[in-house]
Each structure stands twice: as C-alpha cells, then as structure tokens.
Nucleic acid binder design. Structure first.
Lengths: 349, 349
DNA sequence: ACTTGGCACTCGGGAGCGCTGAGTGCCAGG
DNA sequence: CCTGGCACTCAGCGCTCCCGAGTGCCAAGT
C-alpha cells in the first residue's frame, strides 16, 4: 500500500482527481476573482463526481496547504503553494497563435533605436498580459564596446560617449585637470578605439589599466581623467537600467491597500534589479509567486520573467508583475514570445 | 452705493472678509481633506465674528460658485473656481528656506549626465511635493548640435549619433543603399560636423537640404540616406521625451476610482506633452486647475509647472500633477526652486 | 446695514438587527 | 471510496434608527 506509506509525508499523495480539482480551483479563481466552492466546480468543469466528493478532496488540499478559505463558509482560494504546484505540474505555457506572433513581430519591428525597442517591448508586454511590464536594458556586462567618442565641450571638459554593440549609448562629462589641444584628443580617441573596440565590457577594466603607457607622458594627467570616468561608467549602479510600464493595470486587480507598496517598489530601480537578479538563468520562463519574492512590497505579487537575447548570449531580462491571482499560462506565453522577438530584433541591429 | 451697483454682475464684490473666508476654507480643506463648516472655521482661524456671519458669507461664496457642499448638511469645499481665485489672489508662492535650497542644490549637483539630471529632478520634485512629478527632457528644438558621429555597424549600416549642447544624445541606425568604405564615412562625418556643429536644430533642416552638393556624386546615395535619417530624427514624435515619477503618491490622495484614468493619462507621453504644451510660457510658475486641463483623465487634477533653463533660453518644462486639493503655495515653491536649479545645472554642463 | 443668537431642518454615516444563501463538515448508507 | 442528506456557519445585504455636524432663516441687537 504505497499510499498509506506516503501518508505521513503529507506530500505527493495527491491522486489525479485532487490535482484536477486544484487546477480547476486555480483556473476558476483566476477568471472570477471569487472563492470557488464545491458546487460551482462540479458543474463548470465536468468532473463526474458529486460535490461532496470534491469537498473531501478540498479538505485534503487545504490540510496540505494548497488552498485556504478566506472565512468559514466561503469557497477556497489557492495559496502560494497551490499556485506553485499549478505552475510546475498542472499547466503548460500557452503558445501564441501565429496571428498573435505576427502582430508582436510587426509591432516590434517598427522600432528604430534601442530606447524605442525597449519602450515598445514594455508597452507590448503590458498590453498583452494586462499586467505591469518590466524590461531591463541590455546589460552592460554582456555588451562589447563598438565605439568610443570624445567630444570637446569647453577648455577643460570633454564629453565621453561609449557606444555598445547592443545599442546602448552611455555619456559622461569628463573634467580634465588641464586644458588640452585638438591633437591630443584625436590621439587619445584613436588609442581608445584601437584598444577597446570590440572588447567585452568586463574585460575593459584590465585593458584600461594598461593604457596610460601608450599615451605620451605629458598627456597622462588628462588621459587618466578620461580613463577613470570610463571605469566609473562601467561599474556605476547606473549600470543597469530598467523601464516599467502599464502601471494602470494594477488598479484592475484590486490590491486594495497593498497598491501603494507595489507602486513604490516598482519605482525603485534597485528593488527591481534585485527582483530580476534572483531569477533562474537557465529556465525559459521563470515564475516567482507571492512570498517567494523576498522583496518588500511585492510579497503579494507574482513575477513572470525570462531572459532575452540570442540563445548563446543572454542580454538581460524582462517580465511582468501582477497579483498572484494571475493567468500564468498566458503570461508565460506572452513573456516567452516577447522575449524571443525582442532578442531577435536586437540581434539584428 | 458701489456694492449694489456691482451686485448684479455677481463677481468682484467679495469684501475682504469673504476672501479671508475662502482662503481659510481652501487651507483647511487642503490640510484635512474634509468639508469645512462655519463653526470649525471661526475657532481655527481667528476671525472674530460669529459662525452665523460666516454662514452668510459662505452662502454668498457658494452662490458665486467658489465653493459647494458635497451634500446638504455638510461643510463646504472649494470648486475649481475657488482654487483659481485662491491661487491668483489669496496666496503667494512659498519661498524655500536656504537650508532647503541647499539640499536641492547638492542633490542635483551629484548628477553626471543628462539622464541622471532628469531622473534626479523627477525624484526630487516628487519627494518635495509628495505628488507625481513630470519632467520633460530639454527640447530638441531649443538645442544646438554639438557633434555628429557615424559609427560603422555592418557593410551597409551606420549608427548615426547626434549630440546636442543640452546633453541629449540621439541615435539612429541608418540603412545604406550601398556599401561604403572608410574614407567616405570619414569624409561625410567631416562635412556633417563642419556644417552642423553649433547650429540650432530648427535651422538644421535647411542646411541639410543643401548638403548633397558638398558630397562627391558617387557617394550621394549613401549620404542621402544619412541626411534623411537626420531629418526624421529631428521631427520624430520621439522628439520630446518625458519622465514621470512618484506615481505612488497618487494613492495617498484618494482619487477612489479616477485613479485608473490618471495613471493611464500619465503613461501616455503624448497626453503629457499636450498638457505641458498648453502652459503659459511667460509666467514663472503656471497652475492649471481641474477642468482647466482639457485632457481626459486629468480633469480632476491640477498641474503646477514651470519652464526651466536659463532666462534667455527656456529648454523645456517640468511640474507636478496632483489632486485639485493640493497645497499650491508649497507646490509652486518647489516647482520654481527645482526648475531654477535644474536649469542652472544644465547651463553649466 | 451688518451682525448675532436661536431654532428647526437636513441628511450622511455608523451601529444594530435579521435574513439569506453559498458553502462547509460530518455521517450513515450504498 | 463515493454519495446524498443534514445541520451549521457566517459574509454580505438591506433595513431601520439615531446622532451630530452643519445648514438656512429669522427676529432682535448694535
């Protein structure tokens, strides 16, 4: 009797029907936003057993922590643990129809620079999922330098512009200790481009460290200022940039009073970075449910996210944030599809 | 009897006490968020008359449309018209203490590029006013070109980078009709910089129109592609960029169900552009109250905004959006102060 | 002519109450 | 192990009632 043996473990002993019940509860609750009772279940899904049977199953599911009732004599709603099981074993990513895919593709294809790609992506994702969308700019640490430019501003000031192969353009003002002449700037620019062009950003630090040798001694002070700004730019917290969109979707799913916390969390780039940073890099789409996000203010939300970029070269992450009561299959489908196409678009340019 | 004569006009006949009453009502309502009654007024402010007198005054104010009662037997709350009068004649911009000004200054001074300045400005403004802050990037049409750069991407693709004297960096990918060689790019770059450097952007269109003549015939096709992208970039709707921050402050001032509309409006760059576009360019700080904003979704909000940039050269606008029930003097003070310092910071760089 | 106290009136909103219906748990029989 | 039956629970809704803040009006006072 394997069932009895497993009984004290308390897990994994859910038979097929109980799983079906859980799935049904999740689906119904997600679509109606109301606790679902045994009666409603049997006739909406065609489980051919009586409500009483379902009730027994539900009692077990509740005992094991997959569902709860908000108050006695109400239906059940899934717990974080219940959603987790649902996502892991009871559902599949909803694939998008070819029409939808084409729509996504054409919408993104119209973009003409990196900012535009990111903006369109965030809008698209928010619209497809009716949730808040979060898109990270291609990570600097995954990019290579494509060009370095120095633009004279004043006697002792240069504008340093770093262009990466992912289309990011970083700019910084450099204050020089001394004035410079045209030639020295031209020379420095040439050195920089010669040495840095095509290099991965994480490698740049060590390369820059050796550059001073290649500059004429009397120019070293100025050059050093430029070099240090380059290094700063690469390590700055400014490093990773995140865009959020679709915040108005939060009002639909009534967070009642948690809304403030959620909005605040979404405005903190740092918090979002941590959120995305915790994701599994391997999986196609990762889902974090409720309290699994140990980020204050987002404990009552779920995050569905994926990395984007070509397969061999993940660039950054994007995803959606919404109530735990979320249509996971669709959200996962949307995130996966958008990640794919965004990655594709960026790979082309 | 001048009073009687003016009576049928219905305006402008408010004596000093009635104005004081209106001011008191606005102030109390703003701070308590509750309809204010005659009794509460007399003891909170030291008007030395009886409640009955105040009631008479309030009746007049209501008749003239400056205040209303949300329901019979409640206190009064100001109307848009009431706030308007308050802002125009009953209050003054609250000047900031020198400590506050210093805090603003140091907070902004830490910024190291345009994006950072804008981000800091928006955060600062949101925090100072506890409202939603809106900051427009320096308008392209007010900027001059400082440098043009062409970066080779592939055989038939260039990255065009436009840098303006306000620190904006616009980038676009240019698809060339034919492949190019190093020299032709170098030459084109030189021509562009020679002709465009220092020019005001609105003038660029006409200058670019004459450029083809200065390019060797066999390069014209490629050059034309570059030129047309330059022109597109300048006129694109992408033209003006706006950043919003502090959305979580909206939850404090309970918009109840208007919140969704407000959030939606704030996510539409276009809507915000129109909002700021309608502002008076002359005034130091302009205030739009409630229905004065003919933007759907923001009819129940007020906007306090100002242009920033040096006096002789307005760059763009910034401001806050909040409920009509807003502390106008403080908001105006904050907007004015922040606009000043942000303008100053940008002028320096 | 304005101010004032008095007075009757209004009505939003909170407290108390009872009902209903959805939903449950348990049990005894198939 | 499933099922129908039964007693129980309780959130939410609608109802009434009442309180008190606030008003408008009026007649008397300055």
């Amino acid at each position: 009797m394997p069932t009895e043996k497993g009984a004290d473990r308390g897990e994994c002993v859910l038979d097929d029907r109980k799983l079906a019940v859980l799935r049904a509860i999740v689906e119904d609750y997600v679509s109606t936003n109301e606790p679902v009772g045994s009666k409603a279940l049997v006739d909406r899904h065609n489980l051919d057993v009586s409500p009483a049977t379902i009730r027994n199953d539900m009692a077990v599911l509740e005992e094991q922590g997959y569902i709860v009732q908000p108050h006695t004599s109400a239906g059940r709603i899934p717990t974080d643990k219940g959603y987790r099981l649902f996502v892991d074993r009871l559902s599949a990513i909803r694939p998008f129809s070819s029409a939808e895919r084409r729509a996504i593709e054409t919408f993104l294809a119209g973009a003409y620079d990196l900012d535009d790609v990111v903006m369109r992506t965030v809008r698209l994702l928010a619209q497809l999922t009716r949730q808040v969308a979060v898109v990270q700019y291609p990570s600097l640490s995954k990019s290579a330098i494509r060009h370095v430019e120095l633009v004279p501003l004043t006697e002792t000031r240069l504008l340093l512009v770093l262009i990466t192969d992912t289309g990011r353009v970083e700019q910084r003002v450099v204050e020089l200790p001394a004035s410079y002449d045209e030639d020295s700037v031209t020379q420095l620019r040439a050195v920089l481009n010669a040495c840095l062009d095509g290099r991965q950003l994480p490698d740049v630090a060590s390369i820059v460290a050796e550059l001073p040798e290649r500059v004429e001694p009397r120019e070293r002070a100025n050059a050093a200022a430029v070099f240090s700004v380059i290094l700063e730019t690469l390590v700055a917290r400014h490093d990773e940039k995140i865009v959020v969109g679709g915040a108005s979707n939060l009002t639909a799913a009534d967070f009642s009073r948690g809304l403030r916390e959620v909005l605040e969390a979404l405005e903190e780039q740092v918090v979002l970075m941590r959120l995305l940073g915790e994701l599994d890099d391997q999986a196609v789409v990762t889902v974090k449910i409720g309290a699994e996000n140990d980020v204050f203010g987002l404990r009552s939300t779920s995050v569905v996210a994926a990395g984007y970029g070509s397969a061999d070269r993940p660039l950054a992450k994007l995803g959606v944030v919404g109530p735990t009561r979320m249509d996971y299959p669709t959200a996962m489908g949307a995130v996966r599809a958008v990640a794919r196409y965004t990655g594709q678009i960026l790979a082309e340019s």
